[in-house]
Amino acid sequence: MKPVRVTINGKFMSAHMTGVQRVAMEIVREFDRLISENPSLASSVTLELVAPKSAEPALTTLGLKAIKVRTAGRFGGNLWEQLELPWLAKGSRLLNLCNLGPALSLNAVTMLHDAQVHAAPQSYSVPFRLWYRFIQPWLGHRSRQVLAVSEYSKQDLIKYGVAPTEKITVAHNGVDHVLRLTADMSALDNLKIIPGEYVLALANIQSHKNIKVLLTAFADLPDLKLVLFGRADRAALQGLIEAPLTDNIIPAGPVSDESLSALMSQALCIAFPSRTEGFGLPPLEAMLLGCPAVAAPCGALPEVCGDAALYADPDSPADWVARIRSLKDDPALRQTYSNLGQAKAAHFTWARTARQILELLAS
Rank of each mutant, 00 (worst) to 15 (best):
I193Q: 05
V321A: 05
S153P: 04
K53I: 14
A15G: 15
L200T: 02
H208V: 08
W87V: 14
F279G: 05
A362S: 13
R74F: 12
N173W: 09
G19I: 08
A115Q: 02
R180L: 14
A120H: 10
K11L: 15
V162M: 07
G10Q: 07
A51T: 03
L104C: 12
I211V: 13
E48Q: 13
F134K: 10
C98E: 07
E37N: 08
L360Q: 11
W131A: 11
A235V: 09
D330S: 01
D319E: 13
K2V: 10
K154M: 13
A51R: 00
C305V: 03
S265A: 15
S326Q: 09
P314I: 06
V321P: 02
G239V: 06
S363D: 14
A58E: 12
E285I: 05
A15L: 15
P195I: 00
K53F: 12
A322C: 08
N173A: 08
H347R: 13
A293Q: 07
L104Q: 13
H208F: 12
V178I: 15
Q155Y: 12
K65A: 13
A236N: 05
T46A: 14
L83H: 03
T46V: 12
C98H: 08
D184G: 12
A24M: 02
E151T: 12
A163S: 14
P164I: 00
K225D: 13
W350A: 10
K167N: 08
R142G: 01
Q21N: 06
R5S: 14
D223I: 12
I241W: 00
K344R: 15
L268P: 06
S43H: 15
P127I: 01
G196C: 05
R74T: 12
F279Y: 12
A318I: 09
E242R: 14
L237Q: 05
F229S: 13
P314K: 03
H347Q: 14
I8G: 01
A262L: 07
R74P: 10
P273Y: 07
V321Q: 06
L237Y: 07
I249P: 02
A232T: 02
L79C: 06
Y311G: 05
A243I: 15
